[in-house]
Simulated scan of single mutants.
Amino acid sequence: MFYFLGQLGDQLSALNVFIYITFRTGASMITALFFVFLFGPRIIAGLRVRQGKGQPIRDDGPQSHILTKAGTPTMGGLMILSGMIVATLLWANLANPYVWLVLLVTVGFGAVGFYDDYLKVTRSSHAGFGGKARLGIEALIACAAAYAVTSFGQPPFSTALAFPFVKDFLLNLGWLFIPFGAFVMVGAGNAVNLTDGLDGLAIVPVMIAAATFGLIAYLSGNAVFADYLQIHFVAGTGEIAVVCGAVIGAGLGFLWFNAPPAAIFMGDTGSLALGGMLGATAVATKHEIVLAIIGGLFVLEAVSVIIQVASFKLTGKRVFKMAPIHHHFEHLGWTESQVVIRFWIIAVVLALVGLATLKLR
């Protein structure tokens, strides 16, 4: 909305500031932060009244969780999404198709997660939305988004896969880019979902990844910077930085209430939405492989579950004491704060490695 004030810059030069992506990204971050601060307590109070017993706690998990986390409301992703959407609508260029692409994937995945949370709360059970049905809906949303990405750009680049550390090589996937892009988005959404198991564990790595991809989107969408760094220029993706700024601001506001002991959990509403948002950003900016580096913590969590399930089905034995892997470390004797903070450190290191791919080509 405010972006269009910049169009009046020739009449009042002070309005030119609304043209700059950097200014609007910062403003988006602050707007989302204060929105969550302002409305967060009301949202938490409303969810606590409606949910009663709150999010069901796993019986097979650490016993401390049953004592300390019981009764905590879930669906805190509503706080994040509302702050993000309001800030984006206020500060992003709404004529930019990439803004709507990322928003629609985020909201679509969030809606799936909301329904899953709703079923869990109303049934007082971990059995939410059926796995196949949930993945099917996510895949449909992601395929539509991947197809949109191919239509925004010019072929063959729009259907090509770029590789980090390599300057010029592109692998043209053709129509296979659509299922590939969908896989990235669905995989990212569910990987973040699996990571969301401890207070603050998921939201901080998400903010770190959003900040990193905000910078990547800004650089990829700027022809001068993209040429200097020898990365692929994707016209229009710079505006995604404003969306990433909104995620960071809303995430900071949510963390205020999610810090141990959490007053609210993110739930599938938030984790699926934020993971989908990161996946959509990676696909739009042609940094799908870099997402696996920057979001390596999420990949680790997802792989630990895959290994655990495969091992148990094939051999009847478990590789980890409990999956996802953050629970494994809890069973080894790490405190919750040790697991969370150490995983944050890993997320920072991986983000730095991901950023290094921009120059090491």
Rank of each mutant, 00 (worst) to 15 (best):
G110L: 07
H287Q: 14
L352F: 03
L12C: 09
A202I: 05
M185F: 04
R58L: 14
T68F: 05
T22I: 02
L252N: 14
P56W: 01
D268Q: 04
L300F: 11
A182P: 02
T159Y: 01
F329Q: 04
G249L: 13
A45F: 08
Q230H: 10
P261V: 12
G221W: 00
P324S: 09
F257L: 14
T122E: 14
V105M: 01
L15E: 08
G316T: 09
M266P: 00
G249R: 11
L161Q: 08
T74I: 03
A235Y: 10
G9Y: 02
F233K: 04
G9D: 03
L12R: 10
G113C: 05
L255S: 10
T150I: 07
F312A: 01
P73K: 06
I66M: 13
M266E: 00
A146C: 08
L215D: 06
P97Q: 09
D116G: 15
G249H: 12
F213T: 07
I293D: 01
L297M: 10
H287M: 12
L300E: 10
G153Q: 07
I80Y: 12
G238V: 02
P261N: 13
V242W: 07
L358H: 03
T159E: 11
F165D: 01
A191G: 06
S271T: 04
G221F: 01
G214R: 11
E301W: 00
T281L: 06
L89S: 09
A262L: 13
